[in-house]
C-alpha cells in the first residue's frame, strides 16, 4: 500500500508537472490542480493509523488518523482558494495580452529586453 500510494502521488505530480510545462496557461492551471492533488493525497497517506472514521462513539478496532484528515481538509480548501485565484489571474493575462500562452509572453519579454539593451551602458 505504501508503494502504491507513493506511486499514485508520483503520477499525479508528474502529470501535473507535465501540464505546468505547457505553453497554454489554462493547462498550467489544471497542472497546478493535479499537483495540489498530489500534495493532498500525500497528506492523507501520511496518516499513522488507518481504519474507520474517527467519530464518537468510537467504532471497534482502529480509527483513521483524524489529524491528517483535518490537515487535508485545510489543504483542500486552501488549494481551492489559490486555484480560483490562479484562474482569475490567467483570465486577466488573457484580457491584457489577448493571449494565454507562455511563448507569446516570453517573446514580448525578450523584445522588451532587446530594446533596453540598445542603450550603451555608459557611466
Amino acid at each position: 500500500m505504501i508503494l502504491l500510494l507513493s506511486a499514485v502521488v508520483a503520477v499525479l505530480f508528474g502529470a501535473g508537472a507535465f501540464l505546468v510545462l505547457k505553453t497554454d496557461l489554462l493547462r498550467v492551471v489544471v497542472g497546478m490542480v493535479l499537483i495540489s492533488h498530489a500534495a493532498n493525497l500525500t497528506l492523507m497517506a501520511s496518516g499513522l493509523t488507518r481504519g474507520k472514521a474517527p467519530i464518537y462513539p468510537l467504532p471497534n478496532g482502529e480509527v483513521s488518523d483524524p489529524l491528517v484528515q483535518a490537515m487535508t481538509l485545510t489543504a483542500l480548501v486552501i488549494g481551492f482558494g489559490v486555484t480560483a485565484l490562479l484562474l482569475g489571474i490567467a483570465y486577466r493575462v488573457y484580457e491584457t495580452h489577448f493571449a494565454v500562452d507562455f511563448d507569446r509572453l516570453a517573446e514580448e519579454e525578450a523584445r522588451r529586453e532587446a530594446e533596453l539593451e540598445q542603450e550603451e551602458v555608459s557611466v
Binding site: 505546468v20 496557461l25 498550467v28 489559490v82 490562479l86 489571474i89 493575462v93 491584457t96 495580452h97 514580448e108
Partner: peptide
C-alpha cells in the same frame, strides 16, 4: 504586471 503575477503565482 499581470503576466508577472501569473508566473509568480505558479
Amino acid at each position: 504586471q499581470i503576466s508577472a503575477a501569473f508566473v509568480f503565482a505558479v
